[in-house]
C-alpha cells in the first residue's frame, strides 16, 4: 500500500465511517439537565450537546450539529462512552481521551470504556485534525464543569491555534 494510503486508512478506519453514517445519539433532548454548544471557527464545525442526569450518573446524551467524519464519529463514540458513567468517571474519561490525542498517551493504557474511541488514534498523525476529534469532548467537559443549569447553554469555542 502506498505511504499516503496507509496513513489514510489509519486515519479513517472503517469503524469511523460507520459511526459517521450512524443515526445513533443524533438529536436534541427536550428537557436536558446539561446543555452545551461548541464551535470550531476554523472549519465551521458545530456541536450541540444535550444530556440528562440520572442520580450521580450521566443519563442520555444527544448531539446535533455538523462536521467532518472525524468530528462526527468522535461525538458518537463519546456519547456511547459517557452514557451511564458517574460524573467523576466521565471527567476522567474525557481527560484520558484528551491525553491520547494531545499528549500521545499510549492507547494500551486507556480504560475499557474508551475501547471504541481508540480507533481515533490515527488522528495523531494529522495534527490539524486533532481539533475535529476533540470538539465534542471539550464541549462536553465545559458542560460538565458548568454543572446542571437548565437556563444557560455552556458555549465552547476552539481557538484558531
Amino acid at each position: 500500500m502506498p505511504e499516503g494510503d496507509a496513513e489514510l486508512a489509519d486515519l479513517y478506519r472503517d469503524v469511523l465511517i460507520d459511526y459517521y453514517r450512524s443515526p445513533s445519539h443524533k438529536g436534541k433532548l427536550e428537557t436536558p439537565d446539561f446543555h452545551s454548544h461548541g464551535v470550531n471557527p476554523l472549519c465551521g464545525d458545530e456541536v450541540e450537546l444535550t444530556m440528562t442526569k440520572d442520580g450521580e450518573k450521566i443519563g442520555q446524551v444527544r448531539y446535533a450539529g455538523h462536521g467532518c467524519v472525524i468530528s462526527q464519529a468522535s461525538t458518537v463514540m463519546m456519547a456511547e462512552a459517557l452514557e451511564g458513567a458517574e460524573f467523576g468517571r466521565a471527567k476522567v474519561l474525557i481527560e484520558n481521551f484528551r491525553d491520547m490525542l494531545l499528549r500521545n498517551a499510549p492507547i494500551s493504557g486507556l480504560p475499557e470504556e474508551l475501547e471504541e474511541a481508540k480507533a481515533l488514534e490515527g488522528v495523531r498523525k494529522f495534527p490539524v485534525r486533532i481539533k475535529c476529534a476533540l470538539l465534542a469532548w471539550n464541549t462536553m467537559k465545559l458542560g460538565l464543569d458548568q454543572g446542571p443549569r437548565k437556563a444557560e447553554t455552556a458555549e465552547y469555542k476552539e481557538s484558531e491555534r
Binding site: Y12, C43, F126
Partner: peptide
C-alpha cells in the same frame, strides 16, 4: 465534509 474531501486529495 470538505475537510474529509481535502484529506483524501492530500493523500
Amino acid at each position: 465534509h470538505a475537510h474529509d474531501v481535502g484529506q483524501i486529495f492530500d493523500a
